[in-house]
């Protein structure tokens, strides 16, 4: 393993043309954790959403009133829970009959105003809405170097266009398959999105629900890149989004539910970090601190090399 993971800039401070209080360069590793220079530690993103109706109950119970208050939620992610990034999921676009892309742009603006953290934006998942939603989101975050998602093999052109027009990076999601991940990266490259503006989302199944595939795909993506495959050399983002709605969490005894939710997210996210993910995303605030400590510990190792 001699190659290095491409660095992708996320977030822009004032000197970089944005308004963030910090920015990151994700990537840069030349080995998996524990196997050499694993680069900077992975970043932890806390996910929030603009329409809590589609959000896991166990999170809503934890965040209380913040669920309806995008600014407050984003601020708390930074100040109270210590996330590195905020990932805004525009769940409102998933509602039937959604026809207000301007509201998506507004939500992005609101979060950017509330927090100094760099922002990941998860937009619509409907080709009919994509163009409008991504344009508004891209516009609202112009200069802030957002991570804009999600491009998929069947609908990547509008995300790519918005990212190119407003200076953002693209989240490229494929369903748990290294080959499809590589294919999408090639498609994006041929649409004009440079390598250092792509983050691979290989899709992470929840622990016990396909996680074994996701884990190995992440390892394969990383080892292939480090062995020289430039079309897979972008940083990986992992979000086991279904973690909090699995049966184990839903049916956990009252007193154990929060703990189960946190552990279910933690084990998947920590494993993703071990597999070389550059950004890990969680939804329960309680997971953030635990993960931060564990990742610091993982990065504080002394090998024998």
């Amino acid at each position: 393993m001699t190659e290095r993971i491409t660095e992708v800039a996320v977030g822009a401070t004032r000197t970089e043309g944005g308004t963030r209080t910090r920015s990151y360069r994700v990537g840069g590793a030349s080995a998996l954790p524990g196997m050499g220079d694993a680069g900077a530690r992975p970043l932890i993103a806390l996910e929030i959403c603009d329409d809590p109706a589609l959000w896991p109950v166990v999170v809503l119970e934890e965040v209380g009133d913040l669920a309806g208050d995008l600014s407050g939620w984003a601020k708390a992610a930074e100040e109270r829970w210590g996330a590195d990034l905020v990932r805004l999921v525009l769940t409102s676009t998933r509602r039937r009959g959604f026809d207000d892309p301007a509201s998506s742009g507004k939500a992005v603006g609101e979060v950017l105003a509330a927090t100094g953290l760099p922002l990941i934006v998860e937009g619509s998942i409907d080709p009919a809405l994509d163009t409008g939603v991504f344009r508004r989101c891209g516009e609202a975050g112009e200069g802030e170097r957002l991570l804009l998602g999600t491009a998929e093999a069947e609908r990547y052109r509008s995300v790519a266009a918005a990212a190119l027009a407003y200076g953002h990076a693209v989240l490229a999601q494929t369903p748990i398959d290294i080959n499809l991940a590589k294919q999408l990266n090639i498609l994006l490259r041929e649409t004009g999105v440079p390598h250092d503006r792509i983050v691979i989302d290989p899709y992470t199944g929840a622990l016990g629900y396909g996680f074994e595939y996701s884990y190995s795909v992440m390892e394969r993506v990383r080892t292939a890149a480090l062995a020289g495959d430039a079309d897979l050399a972008m940083p990986v983002i992992s979000a086991a989004q279904d973690s909090l709605t699995v049966r184990e969490v839903r049916e956990a005894p009252e007193g154990e539910r929060v703990e189960t939710a946190v552990q279910w997210e933690f084990y998947a996210a920590f494993s993703a970090a071990v597999a070389g993910a550059g950004i890990v995303c969680v939804r329960h605030p309680g997971t953030v601190g635990m993960l931060r400590e564990a990742i610091a510990d993982l990065w504080g190792g002394e090998g024998w090399r």
């Binding site: 398959d177 080959n179 499809l180 590589k182 294919q183 090639i186 079309d231």
Partner: peptide
Amino acid sequence: MDRYTQSCFLPHTDL
């Protein structure tokens, strides 16, 4: 199956 997925691309995922 892996090789099949790789081959579902023009001409192949491994250029």
